[in-house]
Amino acid sequence: MALPEAIQLEIVAPDRLVFSGEVQEVTIPGAEGYLGILPGHAPLLSELKTGIISYPDGEDRVELFCSSGFAEVLPGRVIVLAEEVESPEMIDGSQAQADKEKAEQMLRSRDPGTDYQAALTLLEQASARLQLVD
């Protein structure tokens, strides 16, 4: 069975098509950890968690922030459907920093009314954004 030489990668957010093109490799934040995908990967379906999608673009790598969604991997095609996708230029670093501090404060507080799940999500998103901005 001939294996495909490249991956047709498509990254889509609910409000736009973020990227569509051929790449040699792509890394996506699967729910159980980062997945590096090369052409010819076996069919796979995964939920995505907040993190960073990256793929090579010439010498550089393109890195994008994404929050929850899912990805379908086929031997010659990867479709990423994410709720939010942001490129580093779109991220407001100071806002992310503020979010992170707020989330940490929520987690430290002993108030029983604290929504820990929301705080964790916020922290995760803020940290992933900060990672891209730095």
């Binding site: 069975m1 001939a2 294996l3 495909p4 699967g30 729910a31 159980e32 997945l35 076996a42 069919p43 796979l44 379906l45 995964s46 939920e47 899912f70 086929l74 031997p75 010659g76």
Partner: peptide, 22 residues
């Protein structure tokens, strides 16, 4: 087709959970 055999996926999560989401 060669590139798309109709086999089941590898799941990162239990299929049921994945489908509940999807």
């Amino acid at each position: 087709s060669d590139t798309d055999p109709g086999v089941d996926y590898i799941y990162e999560q239990p299929p049921r959970e994945m489908l509940d989401f999807l």
